[in-house]
Design a protein around this nucleic acid. Sequence first.
DNA 1: GTCAGCGTTGAATAG
DNA 2: TCTATTCAACGCTGA
Length: 534
Amino acid sequence: MEVNAVVWFRKGLRIHDNPALDRARRGATKVLYPIFVLDPRYLERDRDAFSPGSARAGLGRIQFLLESLTDLDKSLRRLGSRLVVLRGGDPAEVLVRVLKEWNVGKLCYESDTEPYGQARDARVEVFASAAGIEVFSPVSHTLFDPADIIRKNGGKPPLTYQSFVKLAGRPLPPIGQQFSALPPVGDLGEWEDVGVPTIQELGYGDVEFSPFRGGESEALKRMDEYLSDKEKVATFEKPKGDPSAFLKPATTVLSPYLKFGCLSSRLFYHRIQEIYVKAKKLTSPPVSLLGQLLWREFFYTVAFGTPNFDRMRGNEICKQIPWKDDDQLLASWRDGRTGFPWIDAIMVQLRQWGWMHHLARHSVACFLTRGDLFVHWEKGRDVFERLLIDSDWAINNGNWLWLSCSSFFYQYHRIYSPITFGKKYDPTGKFIRHFLPVLKDMPKEYIYEPWTAPLSVQKKAKCIIGTDYPKPVVSHEVANKQCRQKMGEAYALNSGGPSQVNDEKLVELRRKFDQEESTAADQGPKLKQKRLTT
DNA sequence: GTCAGCGTTGAATAG
DNA sequence: TCTATTCAACGCTGA
């Protein structure tokens, strides 16, 4: 018996290595509806947000998504099909309605391990199985099935990278089937194919600048280009990359394509592997290029197996720390006006590009949390989640847990200096001058600490500190010492495990910190002033 | 229970 | 300019 099939795209915006699409087209498929449902949660304009975009996503990532959808539609058209774009509210509800109205017998979609996706898909699956619809929901966003790894580890996710790598083994190869045509798209009935909207149709203004174009075609091109230098691929060492390189980034910048599934992680893995077998010299995980893909898997696995992974409270693997609730400090960080050019330039790059080098992310995340400002990692996470075009729930939360020394990494005495860390890669401050043009004429001697420049120098550079560019919001020298002290006390509070730390204890320690801060502020101005004028 | 060894990516200093 | 060593030091793992 021939059936009507639906392939539901969410992530996995690609034709290659797409098991859901492959299953949907095969067998007795009469008509095939490739659909994408515009999710109002993701796309509807939010005027109150701190940057243009929706409640969840900044404009850059929305634009990247639309470009990816347009590219997918083009590819489907080459195969005699097209992408049917639907709107009509909640995606799970839309799905249930079209399954009924189109008399669908087979539903295929890529498995999604994020909590939002799990809840959404569960609702669709409940309906589908009650209605006798065949559901195929393969794991193809990641190399491994997180549930599988957790089973192998005795029901708990591995909490160290090394133990994860031991459990993981080798991933399956990408599916190799080629096809030149897809079954026709069926009658839509009452539904309208609204097509891939433009950014203006969604109610937004133009995107001023986007250095990375979305879509599978662009992803494959970018991957091929990067992989053409085989020696560079084989000897890739992540910690040696230059976070200040922006004309030609030090890494692949394939993360946004992996995030949306424009690029299959399995294809990328196996293309790297092909280079490895012929290479003379080779780096290994965790620092190798393949090792980077395994980091992605590691965070997907822990995120899937940890309740409340994206929160401090109720998160079993997260140190309970009384972070400071200071919206002004947060805003200065978010808007790139902390007065530390290295930090601010990175935050401007985030705003403009939606992407920064991994170590640049480390620098600003450390600065916001345990390094200098002691602001809650969840606040920084929210800013990254919104502005990054590669923003990925598991990886973003995992890295904020890591950088804030809340989980995975605990050496809180190792703090990135907002002054010397960038300087060691970019002593003349090219990166700062590019993203903070107000400082473009500041002599290199002062570019990382412009508040130390004599007034005559500031005048000559046409940049008066405190007027044209802010004074530093804290003294790093003082702040990083205070942060270490606080982290020590917070860790002591956690000695019995995070679950033993109740609200009361947390509030009590926060009060103590507040008191110490106000005492320091009374004595502080002298110290601060001295520093600001030396 | 104890303790050495270890952990993708620190800073400052010495050579 | 680049590399190696020192400093101070965390929690987790496994013998």
